[in-house]
Design a protein around this nucleic acid. Sequence first.
DNA 1: ACCTGGCACTCGATGCTACCGAGTGCCAGC
DNA 2: GCTGGCACTCGGTAGCATCGAGTGCCAGGT
Lengths: 340, 340
Amino acid sequence: MLDERKAAILRAVVEEYIDTAQPVGSAHVVRAPGVHVSSATVRNDMATLEQEGYLRQPHTSAGRIPTEKGYRFFVDNLGQPAALRGSDAHQVRSFFEQAHGELEQMLQDTSRLLGDLTSYAGVVVGPAPTEATLRSVQIVSLGPSSMLVVAVLSNGAVEKHQLDLAEAGAALADGVGEERVAAATAHLAAQLSGSVRTNLPPLPVTGDTATDALCELAVASLRSAHGEGPDQVFVGGTAKIARAFDALETVREVLGILEEQYVVVTLLRDVLDRGLQVAIGTETGMAPLAECALIVAPYQAEGEPAGTIGVLGPARMDYPQAMAAVAVVGRRLSQRLTDG
Amino acid sequence: MLDERKAAILRAVVEEYIDTAQPVGSAHVVRAPGVHVSSATVRNDMATLEQEGYLRQPHTSAGRIPTEKGYRFFVDNLGQPAALRGSDAHQVRSFFEQAHGELEQMLQDTSRLLGDLTSYAGVVVGPAPTEATLRSVQIVSLGPSSMLVVAVLSNGAVEKHQLDLAEAGAALADGVGEERVAAATAHLAAQLSGSVRTNLPPLPVTGDTATDALCELAVASLRSAHGEGPDQVFVGGTAKIARAFDALETVREVLGILEEQYVVVTLLRDVLDRGLQVAIGTETGMAPLAECALIVAPYQAEGEPAGTIGVLGPARMDYPQAMAAVAVVGRRLSQRLTDG
DNA sequence: ACCTGGCACTCGATGCTACCGAGTGCCAGC
DNA sequence: GCTGGCACTCGGTAGCATCGAGTGCCAGGT
C-alpha cells in the first residue's frame, strides 16, 4: 500500500512531529534513518502522501503534519512494539507490589500511575458489578434511626448504603433493637449469600413484622443502588492534559470531557467494543477529542473481564511508549486482581 | 481607615474587575453608585489607594487592578453577605434531599456541586477518621487464600482491607475454614466494638493458633492502614479552572496543585487553622496559587468537626456569591451528616 | 480645604509595511 | 527515477505611525 520509502518518510514525519510539535520539512526527513534520498525526492513523496491523505500542510509552504490516517498507519504498521523504559518497568512492578488496601484506592492510584508513566491522563473504569455474587450482607446500626447496609461482593468490592428509619414505614418508625438488627442480618445473610448482585431473589418472610420491614428496606436499597451506574471512573493526571496542548481552548474541552464520568465510561467502552486498542481523533467518536488519541486495554479479575484502563493524550502522542505502558499496567493489574 | 468615598471607589474597582477582568479606569468608576464626584477626584483617590497598596496599575496609563490587600479589604469590609440565587438554593436543597448511598460518593458529588454553584473548583476533605469508633468488624473470605476485613465506623465510613494469607505466617498458609473465619470475626467484634479507630487495644488470645493469627493479621491491617493519611480529598470541577484563567501556565500550575491530594489537605487545614474563611493569593501560602483565592468552611457530623469544604478560583472571584455557596453547602452537609 | 474641568503626557494595542527564511512545487538534466 | 537548482509562498518578526483609554497635575471655583 505504501512502498518502503514512503513508509519510512511517514514514520519520520510522525516521530519528528510527536517530538517537536512543529511541522516537519523535507530537510529534516532526509536525516532520518531509512531515507537515503535527496530532499527533492522526499518532497515528491510527501506530496503523494498528502494526496493520499496521510499528511497535511497547515499552510502552503510549511512542513507536513500527520493526519488521523497518518497516525493510524503509523500505529498499525510502523510502531515497533517498544518495551517500557527500565525505570518505568520498575515503577510499575513496585507499585503493584506495594498496592494494598481498598480496591477503589488502588484503582485511583492506578490511574495516576498511568498518568505518570505516559505524561498523559490515565483513566481506569472500575469493575462492573454485574457478575459478582454477594459474599456477605450485614446491617450495622449507627444511631437511633440510622443504619448501614454493608455488602461484600465476591470480587472484593464493598458497598454500603445508609438507611433512614425515620423516613421508612411505620413498622420501623420508633427504632429497632439490637436483637432485631441481628435477626435481620442473619436472615439476609442466609437468603442472599451467593446470589448475583444484579439479580437479588425475593426474600421469604420471617414472621416478625419489624424484622421483615428492615430486611425489605435493606434489599430495596441494594436493588435501587445498582441501577444507577456504579461504573466508577478514576481519572489521574488531568494536569498533564494542560501540559499536552498549547491551545487553551482545547485544554478546556478535553478537561470538560474527562469530568463527565458517564461520558468517559461510554467512550472507553465504545472504543473497546469496536475492537480497537487505539482511537485517534474522530475515531473516538467525540468531537471535542478531535486532537486527542486514546489508548485502551481491558483488564480481568479472576479470569473474568472486569474493567478498562486507558490513557488519553494528544493525537501527537508517543504511541509505542504509551501502548507499552497501558499493556503492562493492564496485565499487572489483572494479575493483582486475580492472584490477590 | 478608608473614608467612605475611597471605600466606594475600591468596591467599584473590585466589582468591575471581577466582572470584566479588565483594568478599571476612573471613567468607569464614576458610574458606580456611591461615587458622586468627578473622574478627576476619583483619580486622586485612586492614586492614594495605590500608594496605600489597595490597587495597582499594570502599566502607567492603564486602569487600576485590585491588589491582594484590595481584595482582602473588599472581603472584610465591603462584601455584603449576599444570599444564593434562588435557582442555586434550590439546587443545593434538592441535592441534599436526593443524596444517599455511599459517603464517598456523596462527598465527591458535593465537590462537584460546589464547582457547579461557583464556576470554580470545589474541594471536599473527607472526615478524619480520628474520633470515630468501630461499630463492626467482620472478616469475609473471598477465595482460598484471600479475605477481606470490613470495618464499619460510627460515622458511617466503611473501610476494607484485603488480606493475603499466602503471604502471611505459616499458621495460615494452607487456608482457613469457614468456622475459623466465623470465630475470628466473633472475637474481633467482641474485642474491638466501641474502641476508637486510631487507638485499637491489643487483642487477648483465644487459644486457637490459627484464629489468633487471623485476628492478628486483621488488626495489623487496620492499624497499618490508618497511619497513611486516609484523608480523602475530592475535587470537582477542575475543568472550571481552565476556564477561569487566560494564562495557560497558570492553569497548569493550579491543576498541578489540585492533583496533589496531600497538598490540598494541608492547604485547607492551614487556612482553617489560621482562622481564615478566605485566603487570597499569597495568603494561601503556596506560590503557584498567587493568582488564586480559596474559600473554606468546616463541616460537622454529629456535632463534631468532621472535615472541610472549599472553593478554589481566581483571585478575581465573585466573593459574595462563592462565600454564600460554601457557607450554605457546609451547613447543609453538616445537617445531612447529623440528622442522617 | 476640597472638588472640578482642562490639558499634556504615557503607553499598550492596532494596523501597515518590509523583510527574512523555512519550506514548497516544478523542471531540466543526469 | 532521482537530483540539484530555482522561483515562489506565506507565516513570523521587526519597525513605525497612529489611536485612544487612562493618567497626573494644575489653576480656578466653591
